[in-house]
Every structure is written in structure tokens, then in C-alpha cells.
Design a protein around this nucleic acid. Structure first.
Ligand code: FES
Ligand code: FES
Lengths: 145, 145
DNA sequence: AAAATAAAAGACATTCACATCTTTTATTAA
DNA sequence: TTAATAAAAGATGTGAATGTCTTTTATTTT
């Protein structure tokens, strides 16, 4: 659904929310190791995320990355929007570029609730909420973030 | 959401359902022209569709393609399944390869109804139904299929 | 200051979906 | 039976996303 860049960004945000503080950072190699991402490419994504204000970087020995405070209040959808935009919510179900009521494809009506449910699924929780889910441990989440 | 190949296949099926009969065919160039697809590439897709039994080809002068009878009873979802499989219904919303209850990601629960609504949107109508919608003209479909 | 560390930046490589071009084969019409 | 037509098949090209490698810059520790 999303580009690798966006996917990595989402999972990095969640990882950093759980595993770092402004005084306890995570380096590229640690993140790449734990999330099983290609380290060199992840470096690029992290730079991008710094530019976009999602995370903060510290150079030099002991350096690394941690989450920008503001990022905690964002939803996954907000992160997707920052990384690659929300065009995916306007895609026609049959691949015709612009889904619109004026030019409906044969399944336009039936398809309407797909982007709707996507938007909901991606925006109902904040990163903060997700961090709580993961740290509280009173759920069944098992994947390493 | 789908590959170009699958997208082209879907729209070709709809086009042929409306515009051809076993005695009135459509050639690659006609289809490509009307649907605004690259003709040479479409040729490859059409070959694939013939192999998969979706359409029937006739060589030589006056030749071209028409819809296999069986195809009329299929849904869009059936066509997607034939062309590229139904893996997209099992993709995790965060991009982790296998969405499963055993290994739920942080938005696993919220994401559940997304593939559900996709499946419904893509399977509720048969190609036959869609052809009726388009030929009856008692709807507002405006895109050329 | 010098050495070590780690991110930033730039250049380069790979891959795959997508697309094009050319040649071959089958069919029809004259 | 020759010429024309159109699909089938094979070879080749392209671009964007993804991934790697090397050099530079900033920071910290000694
Ligand atoms: S035009 Fe196809 S889903 Fe709206
Ligand atoms: S594991 Fe992510 S949606 Fe199911």
C-alpha cells in the first residue's frame, strides 16, 4: 500500500517512541538491526524524517535519533501524509487515476467505504496511544517495534 | 492498489463485455485506442488473458478478441485473483508482510475491515451486472469502458 | 589537539514493473 | 498461392523505487 520509505518511517516512529528518550538515543544500525531494515537505505529515510521534523538527530559519539515530542500526538495517517501524501485515499478502485463522483467507474459506489475505513484505521490512534499499547503489555501485540 | 497488468485486464474485460460478441471482435489497437493504454504492452496483457481463459483471440484479418462466456459470471475480484492473486487482501496495514492475529501490528484490529470492505466492493457485482449498468444507461457512469 | 564516533551527503548500483520494437505464425481474402 | 492482416512470441529498452558504497561533517572523549 505504501512505499518502503513510508513503511520504514512508520515503524521507526513507533520504535523510537518505545525505545528512546532525548537522553537515550538509537543509532541507524541499532534501528536497522532490530527492525530488520537495510541500514544504508534506512539512513536516507532517517535524514528525510529529520528534515520533516518527525525525529531529532544527534551527531557524534553517543549520537543517534529520538522522537520529536510533537510526533507523539500524530496518527499513522499524519505520518503517511508527511512522507508521501494522501493521494492513496483518492485512488479509484479500478486504477483510474482520479476517483470522483463526476466520473464514477463501475464500482465507484461499492468502493466508497474502502478509503473511508482506511482513513479511520490509520487515524484512530495516536503514536502516543500505540506506545501505551506496546508498553502496557495488556494486549497481544507481539511484533518488535 | 493493483499492477498495471491487472488494471488493464479489468478494464479490457469490461470493455469487451460491452463492445464485442463472438462475431464482432476488437483488435489490440482498437482497445488500446479507446482505453488509452500503450498498445504494445496491452498486447502482452491480452496474451496473458487468453492463456488464463478470460478472453478468446482470433488471428488473421478480421481477427481480434472477445469475451469468454464464462467471464461474464466472474467478479472483479475473480479477475484480480487470476491475474495477480489475492495477496493484497492479506497485507498488513503497516507493511509487515503477513497480517495475522498471532502477530498483530499496532493497528491490526482497526485495519481489519479494510480488506473486508475491499473484498465486498470487488465481489458484489459480476461483469454481467456491470455490463448491464453500462448498457442500460440508467446510471451516471461516464467513463469509457 | 588528536582520535574516535556517528550522522549527513553524494555518487553509484540494482531491480522490477512497465513499455517498446522486431520477427514469427496463423488466418483470411483475392 | 499470393498478399494482407492481426495475434503470438522474443528481444530489448526505460525509469523510478530501492539499496549500497564512499566521503564529508559535526561532536565527543581522551
Ligand atoms: S471512480 Fe473508481 S472508485 Fe471512484
Ligand atoms: S498485522 Fe498489521 S494489519 Fe494485521
Amino acid at each position: 500500500m505504501f512505499s518502503k520509505t513510508t513503511e520504514y518511517a512508520i515503524r521507526v516512529v513507533i520504535y523510537l517512541s518505545v525505545n528512546t528518550t532525548p537522553s537515550s538515543l538509537a543509532g541507524v544500525n541499532e534501528i536497522a538491526g532490530n527492525l530488520n531494515f537495510p541500514a544504508a537505505f534506512l539512513g536516507k529515510v532517517l535524514q528525510d524524517m529529520v528534515k520533516k521534523g518527525l525525529i531529532i538527530s544527534v551527531k557524534g559519539p553517543g549520537g543517534g535519533f529520538y522522537l520529536n515530542d510533537n510526533t507523539l500526538s500524530l496518527s499513522i495517517l499524519d505520518i503517511v501524509e508527511l512522507m508521501e501524501g494522501l493521494g492513496f485515499l483518492n485512488k479509484c478502485g479500478l486504477g483510474i487515476n482520479s476517483c470522483s463522483p463526476e466520473n464514477p467507474c463501475p464500482i465507484h459506489e461499492e468502493y466508497k467505504n474502502v478509503p473511508e475505513s482506511m482513513r479511520k484505521a490509520l487515524s484512530i490512534k495516536s503514536i502516543c496511544d500505540i506506545r501505551e499499547d506496546l508498553t502496557d503489555g495488556n494486549n497481544e501485540l507481539t511484533i518488535d517495534f
